[in-house]
Simulated assay, not measured.
Amino acid sequence: MLLKKMLPAFIMATALAVSLPSCKSKPSDADIQTKVQTAIAATPGVSADVKDGVVTLSGLVSSDAEKTAVETAVNNLKESGVKSVVDNIEVEAAPAPAAVAPAADALSQGVADATKDFPGITATVADGVITVTGEIEKSKVQTLKASLDALNPKKTDMSQVKVK
């Protein structure tokens, strides 16, 4: 008799225990959006939209590694309600390699670098010859000449330099 009274209560308790976990509320798209935004914040140029737990990523990154890192960060949010990830991120095309500068341009750049620490000195390059003009202290002449000669020009003309 006691069993007949307890059986319905036991069945009711079991049904309630089984159904409660299924009543757990799923996170809202706004909550998921907030977590996704935090996960991708380190990658400017990438945005995310969330609809029904599906995250759509879009934007432009500079490398495949950066794209993979963003996708992995969002996929790690599956426990937070992310159902799936649609990756529409594009990778920037690598810039075209710079044309190899002719030797004259390399020499001109080297001369500019060598003379930048010597105010009052101007140097020009023509046909591989460096022509230096201006005024310089006597103690710095040797240093300037050595810097310019290290660039391997055809000639270094310092005849127009005034030494203080």
Score class of each variant (00 low, 15 high):
residue 107 L to V: 13
residue 138 K to A: 13
residue 53 G to R: 03
residue 118 F to M: 05
residue 92 E to S: 13
residue 63 S to T: 15
residue 73 A to C: 04
residue 141 V to Q: 04
residue 122 T to W: 01
residue 36 V to P: 01
residue 151 L to S: 11
residue 154 K to E: 15
residue 121 I to G: 08
residue 123 A to T: 12
residue 28 S to K: 14
residue 134 G to F: 02
residue 146 A to H: 04
residue 33 Q to K: 07
residue 94 A to Y: 00
residue 108 S to C: 00
residue 7 L to Y: 06
residue 43 T to N: 08
residue 145 K to R: 12
residue 141 V to H: 01
residue 85 V to N: 02
residue 121 I to V: 09
residue 162 K to H: 04
residue 60 L to Q: 13
residue 146 A to K: 11
residue 127 D to E: 10
residue 30 A to R: 08
residue 61 V to S: 02
residue 63 S to Y: 07
residue 38 T to S: 09
residue 43 T to K: 05
residue 53 G to Q: 01
residue 5 K to Q: 10
residue 36 V to Y: 05
residue 96 A to V: 15
residue 161 V to H: 03
residue 112 A to R: 11
residue 50 V to L: 09
residue 20 L to T: 13
residue 36 V to D: 00
residue 56 T to R: 12
residue 38 T to W: 02
residue 154 K to W: 05
residue 160 Q to Y: 02
residue 111 V to G: 07
residue 142 Q to I: 07
residue 119 P to M: 03
residue 117 D to E: 15
residue 117 D to R: 04
residue 71 E to M: 06
residue 56 T to M: 09
residue 74 V to W: 08
residue 122 T to E: 14
residue 154 K to Q: 14
residue 107 L to D: 14
residue 118 F to H: 11
residue 126 A to D: 10
residue 21 P to V: 10
residue 85 V to S: 07
residue 139 S to V: 14
residue 30 A to H: 07
residue 126 A to M: 03
residue 86 V to T: 14
residue 8 P to E: 10
residue 119 P to R: 07
residue 79 E to P: 00
residue 115 T to K: 08
residue 158 M to I: 15
residue 126 A to Y: 09
residue 67 K to F: 02
residue 67 K to M: 11
residue 89 I to C: 04
residue 6 M to C: 05
residue 136 I to T: 12
residue 76 N to D: 15
residue 49 D to Q: 13
residue 28 S to N: 06
residue 2 L to K: 15
residue 118 F to T: 10
residue 42 A to V: 04
residue 134 G to H: 12
residue 135 E to S: 12
residue 150 A to C: 09
residue 39 A to P: 08
residue 113 D to S: 12
residue 15 A to F: 03
residue 95 P to W: 01
residue 81 G to H: 07
residue 108 S to E: 14
residue 131 T to K: 13
residue 139 S to G: 12
residue 77 L to E: 12
residue 37 Q to C: 00
residue 144 L to K: 02
residue 149 D to E: 15
residue 85 V to C: 01
residue 57 L to D: 10
residue 135 E to D: 12
residue 66 E to L: 07
residue 32 I to D: 04
residue 111 V to L: 06
residue 68 T to E: 07
residue 83 K to F: 03
residue 70 V to P: 04
residue 79 E to F: 10
residue 9 A to F: 11
residue 10 F to L: 15
residue 4 K to Y: 08
residue 110 G to M: 07
residue 126 A to P: 04
residue 143 T to P: 00
residue 100 V to C: 02
residue 65 A to I: 09
residue 141 V to Y: 06
residue 46 V to M: 05
residue 98 A to E: 13
residue 161 V to I: 03
residue 116 K to A: 14
residue 154 K to D: 14
residue 160 Q to M: 08
residue 128 G to M: 09
residue 133 T to F: 02
residue 62 S to L: 04
residue 45 G to R: 06
residue 148 L to D: 10
residue 98 A to I: 03
residue 79 E to C: 00
residue 127 D to G: 10
residue 141 V to K: 03
residue 6 M to S: 08
residue 29 D to L: 05
residue 7 L to R: 11
residue 65 A to F: 01
residue 1 M to D: 13
residue 153 P to K: 08
residue 138 K to N: 14
residue 20 L to Q: 05
residue 106 A to G: 00
residue 14 T to Y: 01
residue 38 T to V: 05
residue 33 Q to L: 00
residue 126 A to R: 12
residue 151 L to I: 13
residue 31 D to G: 14
residue 49 D to G: 09
residue 103 A to D: 05
residue 32 I to T: 10
residue 150 A to G: 13
residue 113 D to G: 15
residue 49 D to F: 04
residue 124 T to L: 00
residue 154 K to N: 15
residue 64 D to A: 09
